[in-house]
Nucleic acid binder design. Structure first.
Lengths: 195, 195
DNA sequence: GTCTATAACGAGATAGAC
DNA sequence: GTCTATCTCGTTATAGAC
């Protein structure tokens, strides 16, 4: 009985998150309001407070939700090949994931919601994902911090440009493999200047 | 007399834009409200409508204001050197400009304000800036559309990462010259696959 | 867990006097 | 050009009944 009850609770939370993502996709992340979420779920706005502490807490739940989805996709992918192949596969998953939903990209990789900061627990998810890239990058021969930063800039840049200027298309994302290899093969692995 | 009057008007508009940018810098672009802008300028909120048609119109004025500032900086820079030198100089100006103010970056290069789209006049300013990069890129030997996209992704990516993860620092921006040269020297100038 | 009712507030926008 | 006054609407959040 208790199990059934917590299952229902989980289901409701799922509905709430889905509704929030739907609103964000239609009208922007900043357009998510508790009234509209409740309306779509089919309950009254005060009832949301059973599942969510506050509006910022809802954003945090969305943040964590997104990373869990990302991990699911990463784990569902094939695992073999060279380090470079694995890195390219991971990069493709992350870029597609980021480009698929502009508000999700905004929530995860921008700091654009006034007052929102991921909770420690949510931030840890982000850190875990980054660690994955760091490890593969090192295994592929790019171990320096500068190379990691160049790599993240490439992935973030392709994603940002794709979403802002060709939403739904492939104009920027198709250059992912080329550009990651550019960083792997030609980015200087030693800092030229120490200042 | 008419001149004096339009001068006062211009001054007020300047005050209004400055106040809006200040609020955005302190609390985020989405936190700009007409009430708060008016409070800082020292007038009442309805008086703003003499200078601005609506809130979205204020955002558009900020958009145009930012590009005018960018052009001022570009024209103030020295003009000589090889095409590559000029391109690196322009890129540095744009990147510094973009990183200097997170809300400005958000307004210019993201599509994050629900309902806001730059007016045709404002959009033309953006197009003019991009054209400048396109010309220099071509002169530096990178004439293909793919190279232009790789270039904009690099600049946008460094800016986005810098603002999101090391605001006020140089962790990403210092790699600008290295990465632009990477695109110039090693990005394939022919599309490898036509699909 | 969901409801009604409502508090408390702030937003953008308009009318009309001065 | 600036003001007061106000409309209308929406927001987050809480209290308390069922």
């Amino acid at each position: 009985m208790t199990l059934v009850r917590s299952e229902k609770r989980t289901r409701r939370r799922r509905q709430i998150l889905d509704a929030a993502w739907a609103i964000a996709a239609e009208s922007g992340l900043g357009a998510v309001t508790l009234h509209e979420v409740a309306r779509r779920v089919g309950i009254r706005q005060p009832s949301l407070y059973v599942y969510v502490e506050s509006k910022l807490n809802l954003y945090d739940a969305m943040f964590a939700d997104a990373y869990e989805e990302l991990f699911t996709r990463i784990e569902a992918a094939p695992a073999g090949g060279t380090a470079r192949e694995q890195l390219l596969r991971l990069s493709r998953i992350v870029l597609d994931f980021s480009v698929e939903s502009p508000p999700r990209q905004q929530l995860l990789f921008g700091r654009t919601i006034p007052g929102f900061e991921p909770s420690p627990a949510s931030y840890e998810l982000a850190e875990r994902a980054l660690q994955r890239g760091r490890n593969l990058l090192a295994a592929a021969g790019a171990a320096s911090p500068a190379q990691l930063d160049a790599y993240t800039a490439v992935v973030a840049g392709l994603g940002a440009q794709q979403v802002a200027n060709d939403p739904g298309g492939r104009r920027w994302t198709r250059h992912l493999e080329t550009m990651v290899c550019l960083v792997l093969d030609h980015f200087p692995d030693q800092e030229k200047e120490l200042q």
